[in-house]
Design a protein around this nucleic acid. Structure first.
Lengths: 233, 233
DNA sequence: CCAAAAGTGTTCCTATTACACCCATGC
DNA sequence: GCATGGGTGTAATAGGAACACTTTTGG
């Protein structure tokens, strides 16, 4: 790509915080650059003729194989502390891109933060051309991340916790049908605290967003729970 | 400015929604471009070596004369529907800037939205070099705005309403000392609804963020109200 | 004394919380 | 029958909303 007709908007990127849920713990998708021991959030760039939201969706699909993911924008990070060109330079050198001195990737970047919440088990993350691996990490066992990516995750989590009630419908975190206990586990994993079973049940039902289906017989020695699904609007 | 060493980040702008309060109504600062009947939010661009937040503060100070304003970022707008180069072209032609065909200002822009809430009376807005006038407009009497600026205002207002309790402390909308009635008028103007006086008083006091001072004798034939100020943390 | 605005009190209602109880199921 | 997990009931509490009452002030 030449600088006269750039394919991507310079100095602007996005980073996505992909939350995944395994049944008990909340995890985050982190990638590692080739031989660098450099861990980062999956991010990317916006084409000059592409909507911001579309760019983020495109990047996420390329990296997770998942389509039709609900993404929520939460903050744009524009501090000059983000400017660490050495890191990107090393990454590019590993790639063999060493020619250009003022390559656009070495510029200063303002990044738009997005987050998504998906069902862990539906995803087979695939590393892209820049990265060595892409893996799920427990929230409390994150590796050291490049630049301000740790801060980006904290801010994403804060937003997720505040807007949980309104946003959970849109995220496909649970299977089509699920039990009340599973739903509660999602809430507890995200909020990081345990909730009262009886009150949680009542509150969820009072929101009038759940449809009750037949009971689920698991073979366990206890009462069979109802299955629920989200009412589609 | 030449394209080889750009002063500003291309394709990225900010727009600021400046809410002002006059004592009864909420107003917004809108500027008009020279002889264009084109109304817009005050916005600007980010220098390549400047923090995003700093750029927004700089622009606001240039246009309002006010310093140390608390600004809150709320959303980044990146749709391709924003791309209307004709408008900017006409503005530049009015200015006499007609030479460059692919000038950076004619590109597609992703814009970061910020809002602020200030005391209307402390401000003497000054038009910048591009604009003819800069005026306060009532929320319900806005002129037709360029591009998606109307949508940006709606989204700012939504954020302001939701986060009012947490953010009012940081905004210098009221004088140092104010009465409970003045505080209530701010809330009512922002929320767009009237509130019960007795309950509002109790709720505000229960938040434990107000310091009570001496009474204010206005000369009105009624009980003198207490003055309050926000407790500084 | 009256009107206007401010401060405080009372009542009602709803949402939240903690805990208890009973039911279904497989061993 | 009994342990386990699931559904529902109940009492105590907190918070909000609606309204009434009283106090202060200047005319």
């Amino acid at each position: 790509m030449t600088s006269s007709t750039p394919e991507y908007i310079p100095n602007l990127s996005y980073d996505s915080v992909i939350f995944g849920f395994s049944g008990e713990k909340l995890k985050i998708l982190i990638l590692e650059y080739h031989n660098m021991k450099t861990y980062a959030l999956p991010g990317g760039f916006v084409k000059t003729n592409e909507a911001l939201d579309d760019a983020v969706k495109r990047g996420l699909t390329e990296r997770t194989g998942l389509d039709k993911i609900y993404l929520e924008q939460f903050h744009t990070f524009g501090s000059m502390h983000r400017f660490k060109p050495e890191i990107m330079k090393r990454i590019m050198e590993e790639q063999g891109d060493i020619e250009e001195k003022d390559h656009w990737l070495l510029g200063r970047f303002i990044t738009v933060g997005y987050y998504a919440l998906i069902n862990y088990k539906n995803v087979t993350p695939k590393p892209d051309f820049l990265s060595d691996s892409i893996e799920w990490y427990d929230l409390d066992q994150l590796p050291e991340l490049m630049m301000d990516h740790r801060e980006i995750i904290e801010k994403a989590l804060e937003h997720l916790r505040i807007h949980l009630d309104h946003k959970l419908l849109s995220f496909n975190l649970l299977p089509e049908k699920f039990t009340m206990k599973e739903l509660q586990q999602v809430y507890e994993a995200i909020l990081g605290e345990s909730l009262n079973r009886a009150n949680f049940q009542r509150k969820m039902l009072s929101l009038n967003i759940l449809k009750r289906h037949d009971k689920l017989y698991t073979g366990g020695s206890h009462k069979a729970p109802f299955l629920y699904s989200f009412k589609k609007p």
